[in-house]
């Protein structure tokens, strides 16, 4: 059974102008040990996909129209709120973009991690490694030790001393490490990281990516890495899903998708990144901008910006076809692969 399986997920968002169909049939399967990169332009629904998995989209304005999200067979969209709360602390870990706004500046770093550890320990006593009947102070002590271990593990030097610092005494990269430590404390099976390195310098980013990669190797987590940095995806992801206006238009193993992009959008996105060999003015880019989701273009939502557009593109949203093993494309031009079709 797949760790995470999203089937035909449709999400509506209500606003002044009306309801926008912001997720328009998402299909995604994540297995343990896989790092999935979710890429796409701003507003294409990356964060909402991640938030949907931990059911953190507020409804209203959100509304789940159809679809299912299952974590090892359990449908999360129909789970009760207390059930979701226990999943969030334990099986699903989340890291958000901005490390400064997700740590409370008024509390010591340690206290904030200990809180998370106690919550996780309440759900699964084995995490703290103390008996179920342990006293409050014993559990607190165990939680503190666990917090120090986790900080050391995410690469904070002298974790035992730094644990009593306040967040402002940490650098941006260290704060992001703290958030990763918090997300990992419940020993999650699935980690959702929404732009974990966007606010960081490249050298710090490289360290965080290394950390994430090693953690996946060690614990066989499934990871959803939301980013718009194609370089990051190429480096650490095993798989990638390219989103456009609420659809996954191309997905598969990173090497397949990056080396052999089939969808004109993926091609355009990859051609937008300047590379070493390019001369000035040679950058291709993508013309136009993302569509208005309140009145999306008919059929393929990318058609109005597509250089290879054809009359049949506007008829219906093209279905996903397998163009190779581990490589699916939703484009009318995609040629189904003979052996993968089975």
């Amino acid at each position: 059974m797949a760790l995470l399986e999203i089937r035909d997920l449709h999400l509506g968002m209500r606003s002044f102008e009306g309801e926008a169909h912001v997720l328009n049939g998402i299909h995604l399967t994540v297995e343990r040990g896989e790092i999935w990169g979710i890429v796409g332009e701003t507003g294409c629904g990356k964060s909402l996909t991640g938030l949907s998995i931990s059911r953190l989209v507020s409804t209203p304005p959100g509304r789940y129209i159809t679809g299912s999200i299952s974590l090892e067979g359990r449908n999360l969209l129909t789970a009760s709120e207390p059930e979701m709360q226990s999943l969030r602390g334990r099986r699903i870990g989340m890291i958000f973009q901005d490390p400064t706004t997700n740590l409370n500046p008024a509390f010591r770093v340690g206290e904030q991690i200990v809180d998370v550890a106690l919550h996780a320990g309440g759900l699964d006593p084995s995490i703290l490694g103390v008996g179920a009947k342990a006293s409050r102070s014993e559990r607190k002590k165990a939680a503190r030790n666990l917090a120090i271990d986790m900080l050391a593990k995410v690469g904070i030097p002298k974790a035992g001393e730094r644990i009593d610092d306040y967040p402002h005494q940490f650098s941006g990269g260290m704060r992001q490490r703290v958030l990763i430590a918090m997300a990992l404390i419940g020993r999650p099976d699935l980690l959702i990281a929404d732009e974990p390195t966007t606010a960081l310098d490249v050298s710090v980013q490289a360290q965080i990516l290394r950390l994430l990669y090693d953690l996946v190797q060690e614990h066989q987590l499934g990871v959803l890495l939301i980013t718009h940095n194609l370089g990051v995806v190429a480096q650490i992801c095993t798989h990638v899903a390219v989103m456009y206006a609420g659809n996954i238009i191309e997905s598969g193993s990173v090497r397949e998708v990056f080396k052999n992009p089939n969808h004109p959008y993926t091609t355009g996105l990859l051609a937008s990144v300047p590379t070493a060999k390019m001369k000035r003015g040679e950058l291709q880019g993508l013309p136009g901008s993302v569509p208005n989701l309140l009145a999306p273009p008919p059929g393929c939502r990318f058609a109005p910006r597509c250089a290879a557009v054809q009359p049949r593109c506007t008829a219906a949203i093209p279905p996903s076809v397998a163009v190779a093993a581990h490589h699916e494309v939703a484009c009318v031009l995609a040629e189904p692969h003979a052996s993968a079709a089975a």
Partner: peptide, 9 residues
């Protein structure tokens, strides 16, 4: 060395 290049290889 830290610059992530968009090339899986």
């Amino acid at each position: 060395s830290a610059m992530p290049e968009p090339d899986p290889d």
